[in-house]
Amino acid sequence: MKRILILGFGNPLRGDDGVGWYVATQLFERTGAWRCDVRTLHQLVPELADDLARYEVAVLIDASADQPAGSVRIRELGAEAPRTEEGAFSHHVGPRELLTLAATLYGHTPRTFLCTIGGADFGFTEQLSPSAQAGAQQAIRTLQALLALVAN
């Protein structure tokens, strides 16, 4: 059984930006006997590279303001050259940068999947919009099936 890290990130005080937290915690509760850890945080930070390098599989879950509300995209992040599209950080990093840090500094990257869910409302609320909620349910089901395939 592979060690799995589920990382949900975003700001749960800003409506659908918290969908990553919701999906991560819900998914974790459904992972049963798998060797799973879950983390929820506002943003990806450089220190996570050290943690990430200790796992075989990682799922990063985030809200997206760019894709249609309620839509779900899951893609595997491969080992790529360092990219700085999210900024060569001061105190936060993007998913690919995190992988690059893990590979360069700690010599290992887990098989990593990035799941993004389109949000509709990023206002001052702790509630998910109906479309984000629907997207979250779809993401949970799909990720559960995905982890079943890659966990062993």
Binding site: Q43, T84, E85, E86, G87, A88, F89, S90, H91, H92
Partner: peptide, 8 residues
């Protein structure tokens, strides 16, 4: 707020 290097 976060600023970036090079990218900004």
């Amino acid at each position: 707020s976060t600023h970036a290097i090079g990218q900004m």
